[in-house]
Amino acid sequence: MKKILLIEDDEFYTKTYKYGFEKAGYEMLTAENGDEGLKLLQSEKPDLVLLDLIMPVKDGFDFLKEIRANEALKDTPVIVLTVLAQEEDREACKQCGIDLYLVKTEHSLAEIIKKTEGVMKKRGILE
């Protein structure tokens, strides 16, 4: 079973994404902020990270910068999953190298799962 790390501070998003992805057959790890996320990333080595941007303690932008600066972690597949729809935010993330930028309100859960699988296929994690 492929492992996905969800870094998200909102309890309802966490609950529903976990529900949806588990139903689709994935093992879900969850973290509430970038700090916890980094710890889990290093200890559990998930196949892909779903990353929220606005979080307390350490936000998504800082998390991205840190893993890209880390030799062992810089190739981790990351899909940003956020409410922020502005070009500036999209660009800032692209600069750090992400696999996909999704605006939460623009896609249904089913679509998000489908696009995630698309990225995993592209990265050779899934056939």
Binding site: F12, Y13, T16, K23, K104, T105, S108, L109, A110
Partner: peptide, 15 residues
């Protein structure tokens, strides 16, 4: 954020 959450919860509910 919470409104997007409602939408998502409804979708999951219906699923």
């Amino acid at each position: 954020t919470p409104i997007g959450g409602i939408k998502l919860l409804l979708e999951t509910f219906k699923s």
